[in-house]
């Protein structure tokens, strides 16, 4: 039951964060697009791992996701710090 109470918080946080990134990079849409691609790849790798029941090593670890996003968000430390709040094992 506690989990159900916390889900909207996480969802709202994610909405606000995506909105913040969109606004920050509205003149550099390629950065936002790259960010979406990183997330998409991460999700795909997580799904592969889940479906293989642990017999698949993800090509993109949490550390690599963080490193890629750090490169993308250089000089935007607030965005990177906030991203760290989402990432498991960051």
């Amino acid at each position: 039951p506690q989990l159900h109470n916390t889900q909207p918080v996480e969802f709202n946080h994610a909405i606000n964060y995506v909105n913040k990134i969109k606004n920050r990079f509205q003149n550099q849409p390629e950065i936002y697009k790259s960010f979406l691609e990183i997330l998409h790849t991460y999700q795909k790798e997580q799904r592969n791992m889940k479906e293989s029941q642990g017999n698949y090593t993800p090509k993109l670890t949490e550390q690599e996701v963080y490193a890629e996003v750090a490169r993308l968000f250089k000089n935007q430390e607030d965005l990177l710090a906030e991203f760290g709040q989402f990432l498991p094992d960051a």
Binding site: A14, I15, L36, H40, L87, D89, A90
Partner: peptide, 26 residues
């Protein structure tokens, strides 16, 4: 603004599931 495209929604979905996973692992 909150003018979200389906791609944006997908990003929100991934981020919120990451956050849930993070919470679950703590």
């Amino acid at each position: 603004s909150f003018d979200f495209t389906p791609v944006d929604s997908a990003a929100v979905f991934v981020l919120s599931s990451m956050a849930r996973q993070r919470r679950a692992s703590q």
